[in-house]
Amino acid sequence: MANIFVSGGTGFIGAYLVKRLIAANHIVHVLSRGSHASDSPQLQFYEGDITSAEAVQKAMQGCERAYHLAGYARAWHRDKQYYFQVNALGTQNIMQAAIAQGVKRVCLVSTAGILPPAVHGIPVNETARLRPELHTTYERSKWMGEQIARSYQQQVELVIVYPTKVYGPGPIDESNSATLMMRDYLSGKWHVIPGNGSGIMDYVYVEDVARGIELVMEKGRAGEAYVLGGEPASYNRFFELLKKLSQVYHPLFHVPVPLIYGITYVEWLKAKLGYKPLLTPEWVRKIPYDWSKSSEKARQELGYRARSLEEGMQLTLHWLKANPVEIFDDK
Rank of each mutant, 00 (worst) to 15 (best):
L241T: 15
D173R: 05
F253H: 15
A23V: 07
K104S: 10
R33D: 00
D208H: 07
L158F: 12
N323T: 12
R305T: 15
V156K: 12
R65I: 02
H77F: 08
T264G: 03
K270Y: 04
Q92Y: 10
N176F: 01
A97Q: 11
S151W: 11
T264L: 02
L31H: 05
L21P: 00
Y304A: 08
L215T: 04
K321I: 10
P123W: 11
L108K: 05
T51I: 12
R307E: 09
K189Q: 13
I13H: 02
T91F: 02
L259C: 10
E326Q: 15
D329Y: 06
Y152N: 10
V192G: 00
R183D: 01
T91I: 09
I22C: 06
Y152S: 10
R78M: 03
G62M: 04
P258I: 11
V206P: 00
N125G: 13
P163Y: 13
I213K: 09
A53G: 06
E224I: 08
I287E: 06
L21T: 06
L259F: 14
L309D: 04
H191P: 00
R78N: 03
K165T: 13
Q153G: 07
E282P: 04
G223V: 13
N3H: 13
G230I: 10
A73E: 04
M313F: 06
R307Y: 09
I94W: 02
I50L: 08
A118S: 15
G212A: 07
G274A: 10
L21R: 05
I50P: 01
I148F: 04
L17D: 06
L186R: 04
R221P: 01
S110C: 07
Y72Q: 12
W76D: 08
E224T: 11
Y235D: 01
E146K: 08
L273G: 14
K80W: 04
Y261E: 09
E240D: 14
N323S: 09
A149M: 07
S35L: 11
M217V: 08
Y72R: 13
P163V: 15
N25C: 04
V18K: 10
V86Q: 03
G9I: 12
L115F: 03
T179L: 01
I94Y: 01
E207Y: 02
K58C: 03
N3Q: 13
E301T: 14
Y289E: 09
E174P: 02
T316Q: 00
N125E: 11
R285V: 14
P171Q: 13
A59V: 13
Q147L: 13
G14F: 03
G102P: 08
K276N: 13
